[in-house]
Design a protein around this nucleic acid. Structure first.
Lengths: 205, 205
DNA sequence: AAAGAGTTTGACCAAATGGTCAGGAACACG
DNA sequence: CGTGTTCCTGACCATTTGGTCAAACTCTTT
């Protein structure tokens, strides 16, 4: 069966169900911590049926990572060279925070992968991601050179944005354990905090 | 055998070797991704011999986490109410970054644990850690109230410090994949970046 | 409605893995 | 040096787990 382009209605439905279930389970337990039975149960399918749609556990994992990679780095692409520099970067921060709020499973999936050495996506990091980051770093450097932005190391700025925002997804239990919010109020506070934070850092004096 | 207080020379040596080996392996592969054989090999012992010193894989993992917890949150304790506020916080940031550089395995061990829901240390987080953080948050709030520090949400400030510094340990492969440093030079840049960063944010105007 | 393609599953397998145990080797100590 | 304690290991076991397969079931199409 050609997995690269699902054909029948049933194939579309089940492939989706599997990826959704796999996201749930992989993001909670990591690759090795996840069993095919767990995915199968979450997807409402039998284990052999999973393996009818994907040749192996690894294949499911890879399909997930690859399929989400683009979505994951999209917010950075949207940073617009024609906008107001400080606003553009702050908007990027808030977009990333919003992703951490809405897609915590995706964030944790990548976190698990990278903490454990990124065995499956090392190439994506050293290739496309690296190029994108270098491009945007150049843009930021330009803005700073024009005096529209405080002088700052652009690469480490980007790292700081990734880490501060993804923290609210990846370390969710820690954040909740300390703040003990009723629901998700703390995302409001985080949003306000990060906006002030980055405006202070970036606004040229 | 009373594991809580190793007695003989051999016990001390082997218990240490096991914990060192377990740190290496657990931090790379997570709890479920690690096998007793891997730990045994890294420690230079046989698998049954591991289980002579620790009753189970879980026991090794717990012993590691508990033993390191204190070391891990110590830098925050050192934040001194009698020092200069901005300097105290910046010093804390740099201490944490230094820990990420020198003890990346410890950082990743905790990262793995927390990303996966902190099943073994939830109590530590909601108890001692929470109290410590709340204390220090109060201190920071006081400093800000006295005008010695810019107004800022202290809890989220602490989260930002944790995330930006631990990022260099937990996401090491990503950082290296993008910056492609020869060795560890990027820690110099990170250090300079974070110092400027937090001084700008914290210095009252 | 029959054929053929697509889908599903129970039964099964081999390998990996956490853990046990009886007995032997090494060590500490009088 | 002898003896009791500590330390170590090979062989073994039960369970889990990723994966296979033949057979059966279901859907689509003509």
């Amino acid at each position: 069966m050609d997995m690269s382009r699902p054909k029948t209605r049933i194939q579309k439905k089940n492939t989706l169900a599997i990826l959704e279930a796999a996201l749930e389970v992989f993001s909670q337990h990591g690759f090795r911590g996840t069993t095919l039975d767990q995915i199968a149960q979450a997807a409402g399918l039998s284990k052999p049926n999973l393996l009818y749609y994907f040749p192996s556990k690894e294949a499911i994992h890879t399909a997930l990572l690859m399929g989400l990679m683009d979505t994951w780095i999209d917010p950075l692409k949207e940073m617009d060279k024609d906008g107001n520099p400080v606003d553009e970067i702050v908007a990027y921060v808030l977009r990333k925070l919003e992703m951490a709020r809405v897609y915590p499973r995706e964030s944790r999936l990548f976190a698990n992968e990278i903490v454990q050495g990124a065995p499956h996506i090392a190439d994506q990091i050293k290739g496309p991601l690296r190029n994108l980051v270098n491009d945007k770093a150049e843009l930021i450097r330009g803005w700073a050179g024009d005096g529209k932005l405080a002088e700052i190391d652009p690469h480490h700025l980007i790292f700081s944005i990734w880490s501060t925002t993804q923290h609210y997804a990846d370390f969710d239990v820690q954040v909740r354990g300390i703040l003990q919010p009723e629901r998700d109020e703390h995302f409001e506070a985080a949003s306000a905090f990060l906006e002030t934070f980055y405006r202070r850092v970036l606004t040229p004096k």
